[in-house]
Computed example of a mutant assay.
Amino acid sequence: MKKRKMWIPLIVLLVLWLGMFATDYRMSTTLRKPVFVVPVETADDGGSGTYQGLGYSVTLELDGNVPNSQVISVTMEMFGKVIGASIT
């Protein structure tokens, strides 16, 4: 019974991480800004730059200095390998 209680928090954390990763992956492949990332290096155009998630990074390129600018390209990487990319 004690071993079962020990695994439950790990499984919950894994499910939460998978949910965050899947959400950001889906947002990235449909040319939208990911939700569960923090900015690491951004430009002054309102959001272009590199963002870091838990174990993955996202690079965004926006359409310019206009409010609510659209995403032109997104690249999502994990362990240095591109796992998802989208471009208009």
Rank of each mutant, 00 (worst) to 15 (best):
M1K: 10
K3L: 15
K5W: 12
M6T: 12
M6N: 13
W7C: 07
W7G: 02
W7Q: 12
W7L: 08
L10N: 10
I11N: 04
I11W: 06
I11G: 09
V15G: 00
L16V: 12
L16D: 00
W17L: 05
L18R: 05
M20N: 12
F21Q: 08
F21G: 06
F21H: 09
A22Q: 11
T23A: 14
D24N: 12
S28R: 15
S28P: 05
T29C: 01
T29I: 09
T30G: 03
T30P: 01
T30R: 15
L31G: 04
L31H: 00
K33W: 11
K33F: 06
K33E: 01
P34C: 13
V35P: 14
F36E: 05
V37Q: 08
V37P: 02
V37N: 11
V37S: 08
V38P: 02
V40H: 06
V40Y: 01
E41R: 15
E41Y: 10
E41V: 04
A43L: 06
D45C: 08
D45F: 13
G46C: 02
G46Y: 04
G47E: 00
G47I: 11
G47L: 07
G47K: 11
G47H: 07
G47P: 00
S48W: 05
Y51I: 04
Y51L: 07
Q52E: 07
Q52L: 09
G53A: 03
L54R: 03
L54P: 00
D63V: 04
D63G: 02
D63I: 03
G64F: 08
N65G: 06
V66I: 08
V66R: 13
V66A: 13
N68R: 10
S69L: 01
V71K: 12
S73R: 11
S73L: 09
V74E: 03
M76W: 05
E77G: 04
E77D: 05
F79Y: 12
F79V: 05
F79N: 09
G80Y: 10
G80D: 06
G80W: 13
V82W: 09
I83H: 07
G84I: 11
I87C: 00
